[in-house]
């Protein structure tokens, strides 16, 4: 298959995803309105609490509203990278589409990746609305640049890797029926310890070390430094000190760690996905009725 044909296939998956998403029109509109409501809530909290914690946000420019909006924007897209592969396979598994698709000459890993694009596009649309609303509410950041884009996409790939590992558990661990152990752990750590709502330095030392197991931590730190604060500046993650000693800035340290993370997790995830499908083909459990 060449790239153009692959993109055509992806286009069909996106098309079907959007038809499903917009099938209940009122729900669709309410979902978009919800984005604005969530942001307005955050703006109120930020204006009330911002002045009390802004002194902790020196490395990130000191503006709590910008701090939290940037975190939530990144989180929205990183979260979908975590969940999309699995929910896409599960949807095809319970919707009985997986076997008929597998009867065609298509690479399973390509299929899973293509399945995942629809939810990613959906969250991108919502994120855009989120950002535009935030700008209307007074969000001010430095302009996007290559470094922030590279950091984000490296983090996104790392999350996609975890998402694919989570998807592989569907067959490898028979993790169906509402359970998703990998994603569950990653989401909890990301929400609680990665510095999404508050700076990491308010957490105990062991929590800060634990926060390093998810890519979110590095992405939040680097993006906030690049777009709100300064690339250099005091380190906020415990592992930064190792890199600072080597002459790296905290942002570069984040980027290197994310690249290592993605470099390990992505090949592992593709290996596990392949093994998962192999197991399903051996056990005859590719589809729920087979």
């Amino acid at each position: 298959m060449n790239l153009f044909k692959d993109l055509r296939i992806v286009y069909y998956f996106i098309k079907r995803y959007f038809r499903v998403w917009t099938y209940f029109k009122v729900n669709f509109v309410l979902e978009l309105i919800q984005v604005v409501i969530d942001l307005a809530t955050m703006a109120i909290i930020a204006s009330a609490a911002g002045k009390y914690i802004s002194y902790m946000l020196k490395a990130y420019g000191g503006d709590y509203f910008a701090f939290i909006v940037l975190g939530l924007v990144c989180n929205q897209l990183l979260s979908v990278a975590l969940t999309a592969p699995r929910s896409a396979i599960e949807d095809a598994f319970w919707g009985r589409r997986i076997e008929i698709l597998f009867s065609s000459p298509v690479n399973p890993t390509f299929l899973v990746t293509a399945f995942s694009i629809g939810p990613i596009v959906r969250e991108s649309v919502k994120t855009l609305i989120y950002l535009l609303t935030a700008i209307l509410l007074g969000l001010s950041t430095k302009p996007l640049n290559i470094l922030s884009t590279v950091v984000f996409f490296t983090g996104f790939l790392a999350c996609m890797g975890i998402g694919l590992i989570s998807a592989s558990t569907l067959y490898l661990l028979e993790a169906k029926g509402g359970s998703d152990p990998v994603n569950w752990i990653a989401s909890i750590v990301a929400r609680l310890l990665s510095g999404l709502y508050y700076p990491l330095n308010i957490l105990p030392e062991w929590c800060r070390w634990l926060s390093l197991i998810v890519p979110h931590t590095y992405v939040f730190d680097a993006e906030r430094r690049i777009l709100l604060g300064s690339v250099s500046g005091e380190s906020s993650l415990p592992i930064h000190s190792v890199f600072v000693a080597l002459g790296f800035s905290p942002v570069l340290a984040d980027l290197v760690l994310l690249a290592i993370y993605a470099g390990v997790v992505l090949p592992l995830s593709y290996y596990l996905i392949r093994k998962g499908f192999e197991k399903a083909l051996r056990d005859g459990r590719l589809s729920w009725w087979s």
């Binding site: 044909k5 069909y12 079907r16 919707g95 589409r97 997986i98 698709l101 298509v106």
Partner: peptide, 24 residues
């Protein structure tokens, strides 16, 4: 029972076009 695996959100011709694309 393969009919159950067709995508209900795509039309008949779109479903079949997708399978043709999957065949290259």
């Amino acid at each position: 029972g393969y009919w159950g695996g067709f995508d209900w959100s795509l039309s008949l011709e779109e479903n079949l076009q997708l399978f043709a694309l999957l065949y290259g």
